[in-house]
């Protein structure tokens, strides 16, 4: 079939683990936005969900760090974190190795990526799944972009990876949903945790929602680090989704800065169904 859904969301561990410490109104609005995203995903009746994540040293380390990696396992497990700390129970998550293998072969025509038949999910994937596939009955295909240990893949490569991923999805008979998950500005797990650069976030999300490629790719890592923290490097996951939905316009379901969650919490959907991407591309050409 093809790609049937695309969106992005936050994955900060505080969203579940520190839920009781947040302003209840802000928290509940955020949770309602995840629910809306889940309903939109379910309405597209996907056969699998690709999660483009920026993991946090759960599987990949500086001894052999892939810029891009896709899971190819029968099943995955997570979270690696203490269950009470994250407030998510450890469990197995189904995969689809056959589909993974076909996607990997196709993406490799354009982008070199590693694969992994073993993968332990951390909060970066488990927090989104907790809201979006709460019964854990939808096969998940994890993708990782190294956003933690520089050198990092350039932004224009993340965009190109997204395009390759879109083409790979469109070649498959399955109905595929895609989410990217990462932070906008944040300084997670440091003494600056809770700092949020709202102006920077609004500007970035405007570029993302309107799929402004040149503007999205114009950030340097030095600027991002200065203005959006080391957590800002995770915009690569958003940019991959933007590349996969080139020519589409998005819808921001929520942007809510919640310091105890250490990030401006974001849920957004790209309206890929409204018009064919090729048509939109012709208009912008």
């Amino acid at each position: 079939m093809s790609l049937v859904f695309a969106g992005v969301c936050s994955h900060a561990p505080g969203i579940t683990g520190r839920a009781k410490l947040a302003d209840p109104k802000l928290r509940d609005d955020l949770y309602a936005s995840y629910d809306r995203m889940r309903e939109r995903i379910e309405a597209t009746k996907p056969d699998a969900l690709i999660v483009v994540a920026a993991e946090h040293f759960a599987n990949f380390f500086m001894n052999n760090m892939p810029a891009y990696c896709m899971g190819m396992a029968e099943q995955y497990e997570g979270p690696i974190e203490d269950e009470d700390w994250l407030a998510i129970k450890r469990r197995t998550v189904p995969g689809n190795p056959g589909l993974s293998q076909r996607l990997i072969r196709s993406v490799m025509e354009d982008t070199d990526l590693a694969y992994a038949e073993e993968w332990k999910f951390d909060h970066g994937i488990m927090v989104p799944l907790n809201f979006l596939t709460p019964r854990y009955d939808l096969p998940v295909i994890p993708v990782n972009i190294n956003c933690q240990g520089p050198p990092l893949t350039p932004l224009h490569r993340a965009w190109r990876f997204g395009r390759a991923l879109r083409r790979a999805c469109d070649e498959q008979p399955e109905r595929i949903a895609l989410i990217g998950t990462g932070g906008v500005s944040h300084w997670p797990a440091t003494p600056d945790s809770g700092v949020i650069n709202e102006a920077w976030d609004h500007e970035f999300l405007d570029r993302f929602i309107n799929n402004r490629k040149d503007a999205l790719l114009s950030y340097t890592d030095e600027e991002t680090f200065r203005d959006a923290g080391q957590g800002g490097f995770e915009i690569r996951t958003f940019i991959t989704v933007a590349g996969a939905t080139e020519g589409s316009i998005g819808e921001l379901l929520i942007y809510a800065p919640i310091p105890i969650f250490a990030v401006g919490c974001t849920v957004a959907i790209m309206n890929i169904g409204e018009r064919p991407a090729t048509e939109a591309l012709l208009e912008t050409a």
């Binding site: 520190r18 946090h56 040293f57 974190e81 203490d82 933690q148 997670p188 797990a189 003494p191």
Partner: peptide, 24 residues
């Protein structure tokens, strides 16, 4: 790296505010 440290902090049972204060 804070991501490694944060998971370790959870493993040894620290509360979030204890973790942030310990770094400061």
């Amino acid at each position: 790296n804070g991501q490694i440290l944060m998971h370790y902090s959870a493993l040894i049972g620290q509360e979030w505010h204890e973790y942030i204060e310990a770094m400061k």
